[in-house]
């Protein structure tokens, strides 16, 4: 790859000043306390995981971080700067990229054009190779897009439309679009849902390969093995709160975490009988 997609950290040192800091962040929907007082710090070059049963507030937390949902209270600091008042669209320019829990591709655009939307958000527009008119030649792939497509192994699908792709491949396009933004903070909401084991391993390898550039990643994931294989540090959520954090293997063994998953399952089990 000629151009690195992931911007290198200017300080060049991983694990120093946090990229993102949350201070007592809460998001309430009427009476539903989807996120209820979460504080955490994410450092560059590391991969963080969030686990928690369905409805524990993981997606809402990401919506709060990306400002798509207003915060009920709390502070959001990006590189030490408060961002809880800036428009969501400003965050992209400051290096925040995300995927959604559901596939959200534009049906009328090809894979290439969908990924290009991510590159469009870069300061250079991802268009370092312009035609004489300043427009990308039709059919041409900008370097940032080519790189993102290569990393997500989408070569050969550039001219396909989303409806022609399998669910797992569609999800890879989503990830490619986010990578093409050249982020410093990448938030992935259950990116491997609907993928098979091979594909999961590929996404895990992809995430680890991007860590070297100083990229900070936050992964929401249910698959424990994937979590352990991928993440440096894991937060466990339940009912909008953090109930455990630490090394993945330890968090997963934490009684409170097991209770959060198990208690619910047991109750469902009992109700079912």
């Amino acid at each position: 790859m000629s151009t690195p997609v992931v911007q290198t950290d200017d300080a060049g040192t991983a694990g120093t000043a946090p990229v993102l800091e949350l201070r007592d962040v809460a998001v309430h929907f009427g009476g539903v306390k989807a996120v209820d007082g979460i504080s955490l710090q994410l450092e560059p070059g590391r991969i963080y995981g969030i686990i928690g049963p369905n409805g524990s507030g993981k997606s809402t937390l990401i919506a709060g971080i990306t400002r798509l949902t207003g915060l009920t209270r709390g502070e959001l600091l990006l590189d030490g700067q408060p961002v809880h008042d800036v428009a969501p669209s400003r965050l992209a320019g400051r290096g925040v990229a995300r995927t959604f829990q559901t596939v959200r591709l534009l049906a009328d655009l090809t894979v290439r054009a969908n990924v290009q939307i991510g590159a469009d958000a870069r300061a250079d527009g991802g268009r370092s190779r312009r035609g004489p008119t300043g427009w990308l030649r039709p059919g041409a792939t900008s370097p940032a897009v080519a790189d993102a497509i290569a990393r997500t192994r989408l070569e050969g699908f550039e001219d396909h439309y989303p409806a022609e792709l399998s669910y797992g491949t569609q999800r890879r396009v989503e990830i490619a679009r986010a990578i093409a933004m050249g982020p410093r903070l990448l938030l992935l909401d259950e990116p491997t849902a609907g993928m098979n084991q091979t594909e999961r391993a590929e996404i895990s390898a992809l995430m680890r390969s991007m860590r070297t550039g100083g990229l900070c990643q936050l992964l929401v994931e249910h698959d424990v093995q994937m979590m352990i294989d991928t993440c440096d540090y894991v937060f466990a959520m339940n009912s909008g709160r953090l109930i455990a954090q630490g090394a993945p293997a330890e968090v997963v063994r934490d009684p409170a975490v097991q209770e959060a998953y198990l208690g619910r399952k047991w109750r469902e089990h009992a109700d079912g009988d």
Binding site: A92, L106, L109
Partner: peptide, 21 residues
């Protein structure tokens, strides 16, 4: 080009558009 893609995104998925800057 870029403007066209952006217009498409704003129409089809405003939330996605916002997170794409």
């Amino acid at each position: 080009g870029r403007l066209g893609r952006r217009v498409d995104t704003v129409r089809d998925d405003p939330e996605l558009a916002a997170s794409m800057g």
